[in-house]
């Protein structure tokens, strides 16, 4: 547990990682006539929270967990709900375990864990436009993280050409700030709804008080998503949530073809 101010600083939209430039699909949803008012915005945010929000929060929490040796993974015998989830393919599930072997290089273990998370998140992001956006946002957050926490190690993130996925960087930034995986998941879930909500004020000219009231009504759902994500982050990477939304892919790819747009995503 850490000072609450640190949590607030990371969750603040003014944190210099460029979040304000993204509507997270809302701009395309507005252009397609699917989000037109406060009620449809509420439906949009609920859907985002249950899909992209849950996945981002789980991966951020898992990356935080991977960075933070004080949050070891549960033992294989502690795994529950086997019936609903995929057994480790080819018996290589142990490869994902993060507990360093005696004398093992903890840095190598973290590197392998983050690479595994990166590949699993790629497989959950079918849309190329969404993968690029996640990596661009990750790059921007990484720049801020390196400046703000120069002592923290971000070098174990996989070297992908477009940058590391944003949730992975968020997990490491959160760990550098002393947050625990549950708090990092809260930051991610909160960002899912607040980013699109503030974009909605600009895109639809909605009453900011009404939009804020909507966010207040969604606070419990946001907390529940974060809690669900933090629990899920205790699972091996291949079992993390993969909630997808067909329209998120469609909106992202449509948006990427526009020549003029207000938001980067």
């Amino acid at each position: 547990m850490t000072a609450p101010t640190m949590l607030l600083l990371l969750a603040d939209g003014r944190f210099p990682a460029g979040a304000h430039a993204h509507s997270s699909g809302l701009e395309a949803a507005v252009a397609a006539g699917r989000v037109t008012d406060l009620a449809t915005l509420g439906d949009y945010l609920r859907g985002r929270l249950a899909t992209a929000g849950l996945v981002a929060a789980a991966f951020a929490a898992a990356a935080c967990r991977a960075a933070e040796p004080s949050h070891p993974r549960p033992s294989p015998s502690g795994e529950a709900d086997q019936s609903r989830l995929r057994p480790p393919p080819n018996g290589d599930g142990d490869r994902a375990r993060l507990t360093p072997s005696p004398g093992g290089d903890a840095g190598q273990v973290r590197r392998a864990a983050l690479a595994r998370l990166d590949a699993e998140l790629d497989a959950r992001t079918a849309s190329l436009a969404q993968r690029s956006v996640s990596r661009r946002q990750g790059k921007a957050l990484l720049r801020a993280g390196r400046e703000i926490w120069p002592a923290a190690s971000f070098d174990e993130l996989p070297a992908a050409p477009g940058g590391p996925h944003q949730p992975l960087v968020l997990g490491l930034v959160g760990a550098a700030a002393g947050l625990d995986p549950a708090q990092v998941a809260t930051v991610a879930a909160h960002a899912t709804v607040t980013g699109s909500a503030s974009a909605a004020v600009r895109l639809l000219g909605l009453d900011p008080y009404q939009v804020q009231a909507l966010l207040v009504r969604l606070a419990a759902a946001c907390d529940a998503t974060a809690a669900q994500a933090a629990r899920a982050a205790e699972e091996p990477p291949e079992r993390l949530p993969a909630a997808n939304a067909p329209l998120a892919d469609i909106h992202a790819e449509a948006h990427a073809t526009w020549e003029v747009r207000l938001f980067a995503s």
Binding site: L49, T51, A245
Partner: peptide
């Protein structure tokens, strides 16, 4: 939540 809404199936 939101499954038939504008973020998921519209």
């Amino acid at each position: 939540p939101g499954w038939s809404g504008p973020a998921v199936l519209g």
